[in-house]
């Protein structure tokens, strides 16, 4: 008998698999960037669901900190895509 968390876990794993398919197939770097971003979100969900799935939901706060780490990574990637580098100087804005 499958309960709610079994179904949720299955859904998260299927999403994980589909996201990875997008990352593996590509074809452009931006597909993979999107895949990595979604994968971060799915990992947060995996940790949150896994806590309830095993009956020990003490790590829910850990999932929140993962969201923060994911956010920092997304900012760096967006900055790289927009300015072509991380050490972008605000004063040299017009040249980019």
């Amino acid at each position: 008998m499958a309960d709610m968390f079994d179904v949720a876990m299955g859904g998260v794993l299927v999403t994980m698999f589909l996201t990875l398919v997008r990352g593996v197939l590509g074809p452009t770097a931006y597909d993979r960037l999107l895949a990595a971003n979604v994968f971060g979100t799915v990992t947060i969900l995996l940790i949150a669901v896994a806590g309830f799935w095993t009956g020990r939901p003490e790590w829910l706060d850990l999932a929140i900190v993962y969201a923060l780490v994911n956010f920092a990574g997304t900012i760096a990637v967006a900055k790289y895509a927009r300015f072509g580098g991380l050490a972008h100087d605000e004063r040299a804005k017009d040249e980019s």
Binding site: L20, G23, G26, T28, A29, R32, L33, A35, A36, F39, G40, T43, L46, I47, A50, W59, L62, V65, Y66, G73, V77, Y80
Partner: peptide, 28 residues
């Protein structure tokens, strides 16, 4: 550039594995 995105996915996957193995500090 795409490869570094995939290594990020690799890290997230292994972090998920560590959580399932009860090693939350290592996972973090």
């Amino acid at each position: 550039y795409a490869a570094s995105m995939m290594t990020a996915i690799f890290s997230l996957l292994s972090a998920g594995l560590f959580v399932l193995m009860d090693a939350v500090d290592v996972a973090f």
